[in-house]
């Protein structure tokens, strides 16, 4: 059970200090989650902290590859407007 960061990441580094497992590092232009260390915050917090603070839609996915913050959920900008 671990989360992943996609190439949508802009490397704002907000997730790094909120991770209770110290599982997030900056690597090759984006932040990366150490799959062996990530517990999705089980045992620490009710909700995964990186998902809660990440400002970029689609930047964090679960084990199935499903975005934890789907398009439109953070900016409030409707999906079809985003390509402007």
């Amino acid at each position: 059970m671990a989360l992943s960061i996609t190439e949508e990441c802009v490397a704002c580094q907000a997730c790094e200090p909120v991770c209770p497992n110290d599982a997030i590092r900056f690597k090759s232009g984006i932040m990366r989650i150490d799959k062996n260390a990530c517990t999705e915050c089980a045992g620490y917090h009710e909700l995964p902290q990186c998902v809660e603070i990440c400002p970029v839609e689609g930047a964090i996915t679960n084990a199935d590859g499903t975005p934890m913050n789907p398009p439109g959920t953070l900016t409030g900008i409707p999906r079809k407007k985003k390509s402007v």
């Binding site: 802009v10 704002c12 580094q13 907000a14 200090p17 603070i53 400002p55 953070l74 900016t75 409030g76």
Partner: peptide
């Protein structure tokens, strides 16, 4: 200071 703790609707950070 790259990180932010909120999203203001007038802001979009570019790094």
């Amino acid at each position: 200071a790259p990180a932010c703790n909120m999203q203001c609707r007038y802001c979009n950070r570019k790094f």
